[in-house]
């Protein structure tokens, strides 16, 4: 499943729905899901090639904090702040990614190095508490009633505007996924994830190919972080970086399916809806129940459904179609 029409059709449907009118609570949930789906899609670009990063909390935190800090302390509009944050994320990805790929750090070693990276960012945020608010979190200065237009501050009072932005961002994420899926990079990295040595012998520059996808993935994740802080107008080290958030990203993508275009989106929907539904129907007594279910589900997914829910459904459909094609071919002959 890989197309332009399907994401665009979904996006159009969502926009129409928003114009017709959605109550503000479901609208809020949908915005959050779309922003996270974008971030998850960014992670899956790397994850699908076996580059399992537990460090995406670092990029997300960098994107969120750099944007918010530039706005508060330098008065810089997010329109400039976000590109700077993305450039910093790309730089960080190169600084850590290049030696990793150069020295062939793969598998769980790669996961642990990136885990250390996300902890570096989290602890740095806490350590610089004089400027970032530390563990208590950080709030971008509200636009207030002065003459800064909301478009400059990228802060909007109404959820409808945010919804349209989130749909656009999510759509771009899916299109990037598609572009990567159809590119030469994908074929090169598929080969690399099968066997690095053979891929290198076949003339693939392993370090360079991996670095490209890592930078793209890091920049997307940082953008997701920036969107998150602009929408929520609050950010705390534990909600954007650290081992917990890194595992959450990985879990949602693995649950949805890492090899399909809509897999990360599907993962975002089921994980966030599960948390919200449990919160609504069971209430605050069940704090933690959603994570208990995720935890067991993650284990079950990895043991029984390594392709994720959507990936497994797609496989089953494809197999059935194959069988039909084959049986019609034999009956015709």
């Amino acid at each position: 499943m890989n197309s332009v029409t399907l994401p665009v059709a979904f996006a159009a449907l969502l926009v129409v729905a928003a114009i017709v009118g959605i109550p503000s609570y479901p609208l809020h949930i949908m915005i959050v899901i779309l922003i996270w789906a974008f971030t998850y899609t960014g992670w899956s670009l790397m994850g699908r090639f076996g580059l399992v990063s537990l460090g995406h909390g670092a990029f997300m935190g960098l994107g969120a904090y750099a944007t918010a800090l530039l706005w508060n302390y330098a008065g810089m509009t997010p329109w400039l702040g976000i590109p700077i944050a993305l450039a910093l994320a790309a730089l960080l990805a190169v600084i850590v990614g290049y030696p990793c790929f150069k020295f062939r750090i793969t598998g769980h070693y790669f996961a642990l190095v990136t885990l250390a990276l996300t902890e570096v960012v989290r602890q740095t945020v806490i350590a610089t508490r004089d400027h970032t608010g530390g563990s208590l979190g950080f709030t971008p200065t509200p636009r207030g009633n002065d003459d800064t237009p909301s478009i400059v501050a990228l802060q909007f009072q109404d959820k409808e505007t945010w919804f349209l932005i989130a749909v656009a961002v999510w759509l771009v994420g899916l299109l990037i996924w598609r572009a990567v899926d159809r590119s030469m990079v994908r074929h090169a990295l598929d080969a690399v994830s099968e066997d690095e040595d053979s891929a290198a012998a076949a003339g693939i520059n392993v370090t360079w190919e991996k670095l490209k996808i890592t930078v793209l993935s890091a920049v997307m994740t940082a953008f997701g972080g920036a969107m998150y802080v602009q929408y929520q107008l609050f950010v705390a080290p534990d909600t954007v970086s650290g081992i917990g958030i890194s595992l959450q990203i990985v879990f949602a993508v693995v649950a949805g399916g890492v090899f399909t275009q809509f897999g990360p989106t599907f993962g975002a929907i089921i994980t966030l809806l599960l948390a919200e539904l449990l919160r609504i129907y069971i209430g605050t007594d069940a704090v933690g129940l959603d994570n208990a279910i995720y935890g067991v589900a993650l284990v079950l997914f990895i043991v029984f459904l390594p392709k994720g829910i959507l990936g497994s459904i797609e496989d089953a459909v494809r197999r059935r179609l194959d069988r039909q094609v084959r049986s019609s071919a034999t009956s015709g002959a």
Binding site: V254, A297, V299
Partner: peptide, 9 residues
């Protein structure tokens, strides 16, 4: 990742 699931659990 499976032990990561156990961590959450």
């Amino acid at each position: 990742l499976a032990t990561g699931g156990l961590l959450f659990f």
